[in-house]
Simulated scan of single mutants.
Amino acid sequence: MDDVSRPSAFRFLKLTIGYDGTAFAGWQEQPGLRTVQNELASAWRRITGETPRLTASGRTDAGVHALGQVVSLCTSSERPEGELARGLNAVLPEDIVVLAIDPAVQGFHATHDALSKTYRYQIHDSRTPPLFDRRYVWHVRQPLDIERMGRAGGGLIGRHDFVSFQTAGSQRTSTVRTILAVEVTRLASRVDITVTGDGFLYNMVRAIAGTLVEVGRGARDPEWVAEALSARDRAAAGPNAPALGLVLVSVRYAQGSDE
């Protein structure tokens, strides 16, 4: 989304936002579709009169949620950060919330300056369907063995070519990424797969989740995940998990990216 001509005096801001992705066609502006970027830009225009250039840490897909999406922009508005946050929350739809607005260093870029991101994939493993969180979890109708899933996830840690876990449709100069941590935890019928990495390919976390579920339900051995990674073939890994269970939890930046 293009901005108006840059004013002579401007400052960079770092917005941290959360959203329920259920009713959105993803983050990125798309003509005729409801997106997070469109709604946030519209709200910014209402309270400042500016047409902003909004850059997110990553373009979440349709149905994907966020607890800590980071957005950068520059503005000529002199309104304090807290006042801007309150103004945005007053006019935004109820499925987007501005959690914080902080001053950022000149040139701060939410995508390029990110050091790592943490995603969580949420599963309800029970014969009984979920009720209150049904829009935020993948319902798997059998108990999952999280110990096996955790062992399998360990085979993904490190710097590897993750082409086996990338869905076609996004052009990348490299499919090599570094996974820093994979953790599988349970609370009652809720299983969470938490993945932290320096970057992710298109649908990569959903492919990891779908693959680990194959291990958790006993269809595959834990060692299969490392074999699928080495195959460098999308057909060698498991299916993509549905979008509704995926949440962007947080994005980490170098100290000094905001002030």
Rank of each mutant, 00 (worst) to 15 (best):
L212S: 00
G49A: 08
T51F: 12
V137K: 00
V97R: 12
L88Q: 01
R127P: 06
V205C: 01
A90L: 08
S170G: 03
F24R: 08
Q28W: 03
P93I: 05
V195W: 10
G158S: 15
G245V: 01
S57T: 06
D221A: 08
S77M: 03
Q142C: 15
D133S: 05
I123L: 04
S42V: 10
P130Y: 13
R59D: 07
R232N: 12
V205S: 04
P103M: 12
A219M: 05
F162E: 07
E78D: 08
A168N: 05
R120D: 01
P143D: 15
V64D: 02
R217S: 04
A237Y: 09
F10S: 13
V225A: 00
P239V: 06
Q255T: 15
L131Y: 09
A237G: 02
T35I: 03
A100E: 03
G150H: 11
A168W: 05
R79I: 01
N38V: 13
P222Y: 04
T55A: 09
G210D: 12
P103L: 02
G218L: 13
Q28Y: 06
H160W: 11
V64C: 09
A23P: 03
R206G: 05
L15P: 01
N240I: 02
T211E: 07
G154N: 04
T75A: 14
R234C: 11
M204P: 01
D125H: 00
V176E: 15
L246S: 08
P52M: 13
D221S: 15
L67C: 06
M1G: 10
L248T: 01
G216M: 00
G49T: 01
S164G: 13
D3P: 14
F24G: 03
V184M: 03
V70M: 04
I193A: 03
Q30K: 06
D161C: 13
L13W: 04
P143S: 13
A219G: 11
A188K: 09
Q28N: 03
P103C: 10
R220K: 14
G153E: 01
G153C: 05
Q255S: 13
G216L: 00
V205R: 01
R172W: 03
P130T: 11
A41I: 04
I47G: 09
G154I: 00
R206S: 06
E78F: 08
V163K: 11
W138H: 11
V137L: 02
T48D: 02
L212Y: 00
D133E: 12
A114V: 02
L246P: 09
E81V: 10
A254S: 14
V98A: 09
E223T: 15
F132K: 00
Y253I: 11
T16E: 14
H109P: 04
R11N: 02
W44I: 10
G218V: 08
M1N: 09
T22A: 12
D258F: 15
T16R: 12
T178M: 14
G169A: 04
P129M: 05
T196L: 02
S174E: 12
V140G: 03
L131I: 15
G58V: 11
R127L: 13
M1F: 07
Y136D: 14
D192P: 10
A23V: 04
G107F: 13
P7I: 00
D102N: 09
A152C: 13
F162M: 12
Q30T: 01
A114L: 02
W138Y: 11
A41F: 06
L15Q: 02
D102S: 15
E81W: 06
A25F: 09
K117I: 00
L246H: 01
S230A: 14
H160K: 07
D233H: 12
G153L: 07
S42M: 14
A226F: 06
